[in-house]
Design a protein around this nucleic acid. Sequence first.
DNA 1: CCTATACATAGATATATGTCAATATATAGG
DNA 2: CCTATATATTGACATATATCTATGTATAGG
Lengths: 91, 91
Amino acid sequence: MNTIDVALICKALSDSNRLQILQLLTEGELCACELLEHFKITQPTLSHHMRVLSECELIQNRKDGTKMFYSVNCETLTAFRNLIGELVCKK
Amino acid sequence: MNTIDVALICKALSDSNRLQILQLLTEGELCACELLEHFKITQPTLSHHMRVLSECELIQNRKDGTKMFYSVNCETLTAFRNLIGELVCKK
DNA sequence: CCTATACATAGATATATGTCAATATATAGG
DNA sequence: CCTATATATTGACATATATCTATGTATAGG
């Protein structure tokens, strides 16, 4: 993961709705309909946010019947967390 | 620091130039003219980026003669790093 | 089949953003 | 004072983004 990848993930997390979605998903898998209940946005807007989070590979999805279940992509999140963790103030 | 603050910092770091600026500044204080040498952008564009980084309090500045020296705001960076560090995949 | 549910896509709109050229401001040196 | 250097500000422009309404698609149940 390089600087551009990290910037892309930061962009995905630069919206507070998406940041909260990721926080919710770290607790476990949720379907779009469950996520939607937590926000004051419409279903298409949530769908847009899920796409943004998917495109930078922060989350993955699984279809079950009519429901789409989303979960954290642990590999990407861990790599991102580690790179941000290296931003240490050397004073 | 709440979710909105974290999202604001992520937005500041969603540009790869700004992310690299922060990385450079973690190594120590630099003036704008020194920072400018690292990028293929004009001076006004750099000035704009420094303002964005300043507005979310990721960096601070100090004037010395005609030069403006920038450095990391350790308190903000540490708080941000810790909050991102809490985004752990619970599988 | 028909309908309801869950989700995605398309299109529109207002706003934000990254960039530059041009200009303004401030300071140091002679 | 005048000039050079360093930086900030302004204004313009093209692009991206967050959001909505309307519509399409797929699946489950009767």
